[in-house]
Design a protein around this nucleic acid. Structure first.
Lengths: 212, 212
DNA sequence: GTAGGTTTTCGACTATGAGTCGTAAACTTC
DNA sequence: GAAGTTTACGACTCATAGTCGAAAACCTAC
């Protein structure tokens, strides 16, 4: 579960109370039940930590099968990447906490690597899909959207470019509204929204494809 | 397992001899054993059908968990995408056969969808990675490489462009050799090779990233 | 040996998309 | 109203990709 908070991309982890890996931080999850889909299982276990309705996107990341990933038992794990929009602040239990993905605490099992894999997957998708919809609030100004992209990608992006690129690809559209900027005044910003609220690849690569 | 054969992208399938799905075409695979990695398991089962040393690339595709994907039992399956270079012709058993991915026969379970997912994954990676190394012969002329890309992508690509793009990204390099073209004569073609024989992302997106 | 046919290579031109920058627009506060 | 702040937008430049045509380098046949 990833979300942009305080200008940084953060992951939701909980601190294990018992062995193995007591005290280490782990991803939410648990065992699969009979006749259950992996996605159903993830949503069920996730529900113990957050309100699942606040998860705007969920996709399978990969299945980890190293025999020694759990020192006490032979267990496979299928990891999912979940995204929460900026601004939502789901209620979470006491043993649970958001951690910046670039400063992870000691993690249980291979969960640290999984978080980084999720981060990288997200970074890729931000460039060739409308994945931003799952991180940004439902409506936003360009300055706000820019902050989301900066936090998630880890490098500067220009608002001018961001607007041109996303508007040309028909990923975002203006709502027609305006929103006064912060307390310092200034020209009110246009309000935008994502056209789609589910993942769509933005016709990725003109590369190598004939024009007509 | 995908390979370009006869100018088309083809998948290796075997025909089931017994229920369930008797007579339908299935992907090679089988059950995971204790203490085994998923990749080890795939290689072990694959070895029953082909010489695994001829598989130039293998990556995890996804895990399928629909409860009714196998009508007789509740089973999860983790699918892998394997690639074989053009020109190799692995020895395969009698019940096994290559099928063009765009004209699949009736398939067992959800294997048809898995093949299409593998095809789409490949098509994406051809555009933003050096994945071509796993489909092309170890050395090749531009005309040959073009045929590989056309077969895999499903649309025309220009040899001029292909060369410029892949050379600029430092994905391929000339070997210095030349190879006389087909029987009709003509200027001998330069021989190229991929720089890397393992998957590498080709610094994907200048998009949104500052130049300096 | 030369002429004609074939295939590949390469340069020139064009189109498009992206990065940068500066200025205008539209507000706030004093 | 003046000064300050923030956003929007146009103009310019650069990089990359698509297209086309001519030249290069070979073959075969006469």
């Amino acid at each position: 579960m990833l979300q942009v908070r305080d200008g940084a991309l953060q992951a939701l982890l909980w601190q294990r109370g018992r062995e193995p890996c007591r005290g280490a931080w782990a991803l939410p999850g648990g065992l699969l039940e009979q006749g259950e889909t992996l996605e159903e299982s993830i949503r069920r276990h996730l529900a113990a930590k957050v309100d699942v309705r606040e998860v705007s996107h969920l996709e399978q990341l990969g299945t980890y099968s190293e025999p020694d990933r759990d020192p006490t038992a032979w267990e496979l794990a299928t990891a999912y990447l979940g995204l929460v929009q900026l601004g939502l602040d789901p209620h979470i239990p006491d043993d649970t906490c958001w951690h910046p993905v670039d400063q992870l605490p000691p993690t249980a099992f291979d969960h640290g690597g999984i978080v980084l894999a999720g981060r990288d997957r997200l970074r890729g998708k931000l460039s060739y899909s409308n994945a931003g919809f799952a991180l940004a609030p439902s409506t936003f100004t360009l300055a706000e959207l820019r902050e989301v992209y900066v936090a998630a990608l880890g490098y500067e992006v220009s608002a001018t470019n961001l607007r041109r690129v996303l508007e040309r690809r028909a990923v975002i559209e203006p709502t027609g509204e305006r929103r006064p900027s912060g307390r310092a005044g200034g020209r009110p910003a246009e309000v935008f929204r994502f056209r789609e609220q589910r993942l769509a690849i933005t016709d990725p690569f003109a590369a190598l494809r004939p024009r007509r």
